[in-house]
């Protein structure tokens, strides 16, 4: 029998449901001959070191987010550029798969001895805040926002002030006024309870999100029997369907939670969003391409691939 260990952090949640399903399917189809054991709570590795663990061969599978360490996985960060125009998780999956199968991306991850298996599609970030609700972009001027990396940079272009606060301190920081607003994916707003004190909530900014793939150790993958390889790869679509269903349940909870907490939903007019995209997306993209080309990453090609896939 073959047993794989998978390194995950946090508790079991929608974000890990594809792994749960994959583990279940693989065991079922192989009659228990191939097992994937899930280790939650960063028991095998801290999330920022999951790629190191894969590279070492300490475990066979892991989940990580590209934005935790841009220089470990420069190619994937194309998926974290602000304002790509993604609105659904299905689009997120399609884009991720396209980028994951590009040779440059595979070469990038092969440096860690890692094979990209599937994404953990994340919804677009939303901004939740206290104080007066922003109705136009100008209202972001001077607003202290908890947003890291590229999304933080994007908000900087409209005058907001990105502020360093850990996610576990976000609630405290928002309540006390250390920050005026927090940019998280919706489930993180739930998990870190920022929705409990937010007065408002942006619905349609769609500024971007993080990309969190599942990878396997290449040697371990190659060592699988052809049958097990087939079992593993053929189970991925069903695992992702299950993931989407579970995320749907999170969304079902979502509306009522906002309602219950009296959080005002802010719809920005399309013109404002276009203006934001213009001011943030273009410079961010250009800087990213320049930076990446300098590192030998075919950045323009990857970006064009994203645009093409999105328009398909």
């Amino acid at each position: 029998a073959t047993t794989w260990n998978a390194s995950l952090w946090g508790k079991r949640r929608a974000f890990t449901e594809h792994m749960e399903k994959l583990s279940e399917l693989v065991a079922q189809k192989s009659n228990g001959e191939f097992q994937i054991k899930l280790h939650y709570g960063a028991a095998l590795s801290k999330n920022r070191e999951n790629l190191d663990g894969i590279s070492i061969g300490a475990f066979e599978m892991a989940q990580f987010c590209a934005g935790y360490h841009r220089d470990k996985n420069p190619t994937i960060t194309v998926l974290e550029l602000p304002f790509l125009g993604v609105t659904t998780l299905e689009q997120e999956i399609k884009l991720s798969n396209a980028v994951y199968s590009h040779p440059a991306t595979q070469k990038d991850l092969a440096r860690w001895n890692a094979k990209l298996l599937m994404p953990s599609p994340m919804p677009q970030y939303n901004v939740a805040g206290t104080g007066a609700a922003p109705t136009s972009l100008a209202d972001f001027d001077g607003m202290r926002i908890r947003a890291t990396g590229g999304i933080g940079q994007a908000f900087k272009t409209v005058g907001a002030v990105p502020t360093s606060v850990t996610s576990s301190e976000a609630y405290n920081a928002l309540e006390s006024g250390v920050v005026d607003s927090v940019a998280f994916a919706p489930h993180a707003h739930l998990a870190f309870r920022t929705v409990d004190i937010a007065k408002w909530w942006t619905t349609n900014l769609n500024p971007g999100t993080v990309n969190c793939p599942i990878v396997a150790n290449i040697d371990s993958f190659e060592a699988l029997s052809d049958e097990n390889k087939e079992i593993l790869m053929s189970s991925i679509p069903e695992a992702l369907d299950h993931y989407l269903a579970k995320y749907g349940e999170v969304y079902d909870k979502w509306g009522p939670v906002l309602e219950e907490n009296g959080v005002q939903k802010i719809d920005f007019p399309q013109a404002e969003i276009d203006a934001f995209r213009e001011s943030a997306a273009t410079p961010a993209r250009e800087a990213w391409i320049k930076d990446m080309e300098a590192k030998g990453v075919p950045a323009q090609e990857l970006y064009d691939l994203v645009v093409k896939t999105l328009n398909e």
């Binding site: 590795s45 920022r48 663990g53 070492i56 061969g57 300490a58 850990t166 576990s168």
Partner: peptide, 27 residues
């Protein structure tokens, strides 16, 4: 899992990540 030689190396590499990883936690 991996035989002694390979297992030894994997374990040492794995252990080597921990001092830095665990000590540089903001809190």
């Amino acid at each position: 899992r991996l035989g002694f030689d390979k297992g030894l190396l994997v374990a040492i590499k794995l252990a080597g990540t921990i001092p830095h990883s665990k000590s540089t936690t903001y809190a």
